[in-house]
Simulated assay, not measured.
Amino acid sequence: MASSVNWMLQPQVDGDSGDAGITHGDLQCGNILLCAKSLDSVPAHELAQDMKEGIGISEPIKRLDRREDRWAPRYLAMAQPLAKYGEFGPSLIAKISDFGASFMSLDQVEEPVTPVALRAPELVLGLAFDQSIDIWSFGYLPSELVTGTMVFEVDSCGEKTPENDAQTNGVHIMEFTDRLGAPLEYLLQKWPRRERYYGKDGTQTRWSVEPGEDLAEKHPVCLLEDFILKERFPDIS
Rank of each mutant, 00 (worst) to 15 (best):
E217A: 15
P220E: 15
Q28I: 00
R70K: 12
D19P: 01
K84G: 11
A120P: 06
Q49V: 14
V109C: 14
Y186P: 00
K62Q: 07
E68K: 08
G199F: 02
Q12V: 04
L141C: 02
M78N: 08
T147V: 06
Q80R: 09
D201A: 06
P183D: 05
G54M: 10
R206L: 09
S102T: 08
D16C: 08
V171N: 13
V116S: 03
S41N: 12
I22Y: 05
A101M: 11
D16K: 03
G202C: 08
G170P: 06
E122T: 10
L47V: 10
S38R: 15
D178R: 14
F176M: 15
P183C: 02
M150L: 15
R232I: 06
K62D: 09
E153V: 12
R70P: 02
K160I: 10
Q131G: 08
S102D: 04
E231V: 00
G54Q: 10
R196V: 14
I135R: 02
F152K: 04
V146L: 09
L229D: 13
A128T: 12
I32K: 01
W71H: 05
I135G: 01
V151I: 15
H24L: 13
V5W: 04
I133S: 08
I133E: 02
R193F: 08
F103T: 12
V154F: 12
G158R: 11
T114R: 02
